[in-house]
Simulated assay, not measured.
Amino acid sequence: MPLLEVEGVSKAFGSLKAVDDVSLAVEAGEIFGIAGPNGSGKSTLFNVITGIPFGPDRGRIRFDGTDIQARSGNGIARLGLARTFQRETSFDGLTVFENALIGAGYGKPGRRAAEARSRAVEALEFVGLSSPAFGRLAGELSVFDRKCLMLATAIATEPRMLLLDEPASSLTKPEIETSIGLIRRTAERGITVVLIEHVLTFLMSLSQHLLVLNQGRVLAAGEPKSVIADPRVVEAYLGTRRSAA
């Protein structure tokens, strides 16, 4: 049984169908990539899967066999499904350590304080934020370090699956390479990863399976090399003339 199953999920805003009858299945332990041009519905799909800030209009979502489409965002997170966001999201007025500590407590309500602190420290060190950074305000960090903090806060919840929304955006080439290694190590921890990017080369370096969205619908899905060779995918990214060339 797949760890995550999405069946016929749709979300509309007025007449705009942001997600239109999307289905996918993610197996435990894999890195699953989702691509698509800007505005194709990728982030909205993450929103409806995680219930943050809204669920689907219709369709079914199962996580480890449990229906979650009607659950709250915090209820879904406590089942072991966490996410990051396209923009660097943190509590800027709190320290790096305090941000990670919130994740540790949010993921496991009732956890003892000492255990939560230990979990927060481990998550921060895992992403490369060492103890000298723990006391810095999150709002003072660089873009890359804020992305690392967002990942650490999510990992501190002890997720079984982690949804990453464009982790490479606004990063330099060396930072992107570091990010690729960090995502691989995250998967090696036993965390299943679903990854959004519109940069296909980033997804190709990580994903075992790839799904491409366009205008809210599934355009292609399958083995990454086959998907990016699909003429419909080429046209969606490059346009008809470039596709013909």
Rank of each mutant, 00 (worst) to 15 (best):
P132G: 02
R117I: 00
G135R: 15
S130W: 05
D92K: 08
G128L: 12
E140G: 08
G128A: 14
A114K: 13
L94T: 09
S72G: 15
E122S: 13
G103Y: 04
Q86V: 10
L129D: 00
E88I: 14
A116Y: 01
T95L: 09
N74K: 11
A114Q: 10
R87E: 14
A123H: 04
A114H: 09
L137R: 13
L81A: 08
G93S: 14
S72P: 05
L94M: 15
A114L: 04
I76T: 11
G80L: 05
R87L: 15
V96Q: 00
R78C: 08
R112K: 15
F126L: 02
E115R: 10
E140Y: 10
E122K: 10
L137W: 03
A133F: 14
R136N: 11
G75N: 04
G128Y: 09
L94E: 03
R83E: 06
F97P: 01
L101C: 03
S90R: 07
A116V: 09
E140V: 05
R117C: 06
G139L: 03
G73D: 10
L137V: 03
S118A: 12
F134D: 02
R136W: 06
P109W: 12
N99Q: 08
S118H: 14
F97S: 09
Y106W: 08
A116M: 13
G103H: 05
S90F: 04
A100G: 09
S118F: 00
D92N: 12
L101T: 06
E115K: 09
T89Y: 00
F85I: 06
R111T: 13
G73L: 04
K108A: 10
R119L: 10
F97M: 13
D92A: 14
G73N: 02
R119C: 09
G103N: 11
P132F: 02
G139A: 08
A77I: 08
E98F: 08
E140A: 11
L79Q: 01
E98S: 08
L101V: 04
A138Y: 00
A116D: 01
R136Y: 12
A100L: 09
A133E: 13
R78V: 05
A82E: 11
F126V: 12
L94H: 05
A138M: 04
Y106C: 10
R136F: 06
A123G: 10
S72K: 14
R117A: 11
A77C: 13
L137P: 00
A113E: 14
A133G: 00
E122N: 03
E125K: 10
S131K: 15
L94F: 13
S72W: 03
L94P: 07
Y106M: 13
F134V: 07
A104Y: 03
K108G: 00
G128R: 13
P132Q: 05
G107F: 02
G103T: 03
V127R: 13
F91C: 08
G80T: 07
T84I: 09
L81Q: 02
